[in-house]
């Protein structure tokens, strides 16, 4: 008997800012849509634990997509993308996510993303609070400078290994070897997109003067950060959440910057609490 996973994969084609994208996504579960964004330079396998978690998927439709240029989502099909340097902007990233949610006809989805996915969750809460039931920015902050580096694609170094080992100690030493090495493995696959993603993460994303405009009472913002995250530290996230009306900060003990991928059982403890708060506030 074949040991099939309940998770299924599909492609959907959408147009965003004149770009035609054929987007790959994984889905499992029924109920409240929970749409998940992977971290920069990575792909949707980071959400493998959540996607197969029966306790969550019995009440939530979990969707984890690959952002264009990552995993199985190709670069735009209708442009000569190889003739310009990839630099992800906040505008385009936000427009992409809204268009994808529209195409999938998601009603009141909860958006969750980690790292650059967490930062864009804040952008969504600012720009489209009516489109999302709530957002869960994981390992996020109002501003995260310092990671837009040339080393990610330096021609004299092995870019796959630089990206994968360069993010190694974003993970906590307590996280299981198996899951840390899987996350390392995913990171060997995304080096061409990593630096362009980090243009958004470290340069274009800057909400230091905008947090007061986010209303967490309309669109709850539940921020969660691991104690071993050196990029967006617990202090940085807490400081961000404090400036958002109704913002919530949850500190995750003994975990790092890729919590859903490096140690799902620990991450799940905190995710359940975030979902509980959202149910309490929004039903």
């Amino acid at each position: 008997m074949a040991r099939h996973s309940p998770v299924t994969g599909r492609y959907v084609t959408i147009d965003v800012d004149g770009m035609e994208y054929k987007v790959f996504y994984l889905q499992n579960g029924k109920g409240q849509p929970l749409i998940c964004q992977h971290t920069a330079g990575c792909h949707n396998h980071q959400w493998r634990g959540l996607l197969e978690d029966e306790e969550i998927t019995k009440n939530y439709s979990v969707i984890a997509y690959d952002l264009p240029r990552h995993g199985k989502s190709d670069p735009p099909l209708n442009t000569k993308w190889w003739e310009s340097e990839y630099k992800l902007t906040a505008d385009h990233y936000v427009n992409f996510i809204v268009k994808l949610c529209d195409a999938l006809e998601l009603r009141d989805p909860i958006f969750m993303g980690s790292s650059f996915g967490g930062n864009v969750a804040l952008q969504l809460a600012l720009r489209h609070p009516e489109r999302f039931k709530a957002v869960i920015p994981v390992e996020a902050g109002d501003y995260a400078p310092g990671f837009y580096l040339d080393w990610w694609r330096h021609p004299m170094a092995n870019a796959a290994q630089v990206c994968a080992s360069g993010v190694w100690d974003l993970m906590a030493p307590q996280s299981p070897d198996k899951d840390r090495w899987l996350t390392w493995f995913y990171y060997t696959q995304g080096s061409e997109a990593f630096k362009g993603d980090l243009y958004f993460y470290s340069v274009d994303h800057d909400l230091r003067e905008e947090l007061g405009r986010i209303d967490g009472r309309k669109c709850p913002v539940i921020m969660m950060t691991g104690t071993y995250d050196y990029l967006t530290t617990p202090e940085m996230t807490e400081n961000t959440a404090r400036q958002i009306k109704g913002g919530v900060y949850i500190e995750m003990e003994d975990i790092g910057h890729f919590p859903m991928s490096e140690n799902y059982p620990v991450f799940k403890i905190y995710l359940k609490e975030a979902l509980r708060i959202i149910r309490e506030r929004k039903g």
Binding site: G146, D169, L170, Q174, Y230
Partner: peptide
């Protein structure tokens, strides 16, 4: 089991 921010060369050079 190193404490946070002492768990690697990137973490310790950033923080």
């Amino acid at each position: 089991m190193p404490r946070p921010m002492f768990h690697g060369i990137w973490a310790a050079s950033f923080r």
